[in-house]
Amino acid sequence: MIPHIESGVHGFDELGNFKGGGGIPENTVTLIYGPPKTGKSIFSYQFAYHGLIIEEPCLYMLIDYTMKDLKQNMMEFGFNMERYLENDNFHVINAVTTNREDLMVDSEVYRYSSVKNPIDIMVKVGEGASLVHKKNPRFRAVIDSLTTLLLYNENMLIVRILKAYIMRIKAAGGTVIITYTEGSTDSNKETMIKSMVDNIIRLDGEYLTIEAMKGMGKRRAPYNITDKGMVVGKGIL
């Protein structure tokens, strides 16, 4: 009943075992959380890159690393970003560096903002969402990661802004991945963040746990990070 989109993560889409094919429910928000260095960003790279291959544009919020790092990180798994930056399907909101450091031209599809100015980020999200939507109403969006935004700003403000972000992207038809390092805000706000998303996936380094996903029950499966990216094994109920 609920349409799904392919996650791009090997083995993940088989976990759900849906009649109409697995994946991530379209037009929902998925929180990927867990301890540091467990592959959360890698999940979002695969999600974004797979979308680009099948011509679903992506609105990517760059927060933890520079564009140069992103390209390098993705290259490690053989994902070549250049052509998607050229064909304007990869939209970036760069909240990490200025254009002098980054060498990318500030353009319609490549916007600079600042991690310390979440309001400005939101303005660019609003513009970006409508632009991407025009290209393809089926699009993807990534925030990698919420952690750094929380670090630099009043946490409740970020919770509110996240709500606004979710409302905007969903209204535009997008499907969202948000990464978050557990414990980076107090437990009240962490619970609040979980309540705002539709799907919750936890990565602990060994297992991937689908704690909640629209239309299905809990799932758990081992995973590895290989040179192809994250590979998820057979699911355990």
Partner: peptide
């Protein structure tokens, strides 16, 4: 109001 809900003032 605006700042608190994440809109430009």
């Amino acid at each position: 109001s605006s700042y608190f809900i994440g809109s430009p003032v």
